[in-house]
Write a protein that binds this DNA or RNA. Structure first.
Lengths: 190, 190
DNA sequence: GTCTATAGAATGATAGAC
DNA sequence: GTCTATCATTCTATAGAC
């Protein structure tokens, strides 16, 4: 299926150069066809972009849900800390995270509504996944800390580490991961 | 000085549409001149962009240093919590933060080196400012938490909240601020 | 320092042959 | 589904008059 090749290449190009910075000719080039042939698969650049975005959203959610399923038997500490490492490690392996972040953080104006809706669904899903994780183990939490606090502050740290990932200084990211985790775990557990 | 008008408008346009998405004609239009007149002030679009970026970097650092100076007599808790609120509140008041984040997170490829250098200097400065803040008050910290841990995990939370700022859901941002702060403070102090 | 005129390249998109 | 040919538009940038 050529549309999948196109979407894969488009994801990379959009991740590297943004929506406006990536041209159909460079995408077509990388796939090995002429740019006009793209229109046999997608009716416009906007159509290609939004298809790519929808895929990337499904992809992000799939990874996270899959991780939760596969590690449901581990301890709370293990689930959380390993997740941070695995999710951050995922960044190097594909452009999906980079594209998804770029698009969610700075959506091209003409897609703003649509993408904001996607972001909202994504974050909602994420929050409720983590909320129920902490709800199951709420006996481990400090008296003043309820499951919602524990979940939301964990996700805030995750977002903060993603920013460090974008900056691209691995040593600094590592230090931030270590310190944030230490402070978080001390703040959350008895 | 017209160059300042140009840089101000350019900042807004680059913040809204990115480097490639903002055109010289739309910038000139908003300033009230023809696009060709821009070349009397800047030798290229790249020149205008990098000038704008340098200004934005100075601006971000200035705000943070100024805040630190003005609040050096407050308690640690007060300094930190008020900073979170003031810095986040700043987002609505100018496009400087948005532009600076967009550019630092996703620099146009041709400026990558230059911007990475700027980002590095900015974060270094920020970290050492906060490091010495905690160094001064390290008696308030938990035994296992040193000033570096306290500083880096605070800055990670700040970055995480900036992401939420970009998403643009104020109620969610507020919840994250409350929970993150609560967990952080419990994790860091005796 | 601003303007008009213009160059030259690239962009997204359509029509129609094969 | 891919190609060639082509269009209209936009883009950055330069030259030169005022």
């Amino acid at each position: 299926m050529k549309s999948n090749d196109l979407k894969e290449v488009a994801l990379n190009q959009f991740a590297l150069h943004g929506y406006q910075g990536a041209s159909l000719s460079s995408i077509a080039n990388e796939v090995g066809i002429k740019k006009q042939s793209i229109y046999a698969h997608f009716k416009s650049k906007e159509d290609l972009f939004i298809s790519t975005y929808n895929d990337s959203l499904v992809n992000e959610l799939y990874f996270i849900k899959q991780y939760m399923l596969e590690n449901s038997s581990s301890s709370l500490k293990e689930v959380l800390y390993t997740f941070l490492n695995e999710y951050l490690g995922r960044y190097e392996k594909s452009h999906n995270m980079n594209f998804f972040m770029r698009t969610s953080f700075f959506p091209p104006v003409q897609f703003e509504q649509q993408i904001k809706k996607g972001t909202n669904e994504f974050v909602d899903e994420l929050e409720s996944l983590y909320f129920s994780l902490f709800e199951d183990k709420k006996d481990d939490l400090k008296p003043g800390i309820n499951p919602e606090f524990a979940a939301l502050s964990f996700l805030t740290i995750l977002d903060g580490l993603l920013v460090e990932l974008l900056y691209g200084f691995p040593e600094r990211l590592q230090k931030r991961l270590t310190s944030s985790w230490e402070v978080y775990w001390q703040g959350v557990t008895k």
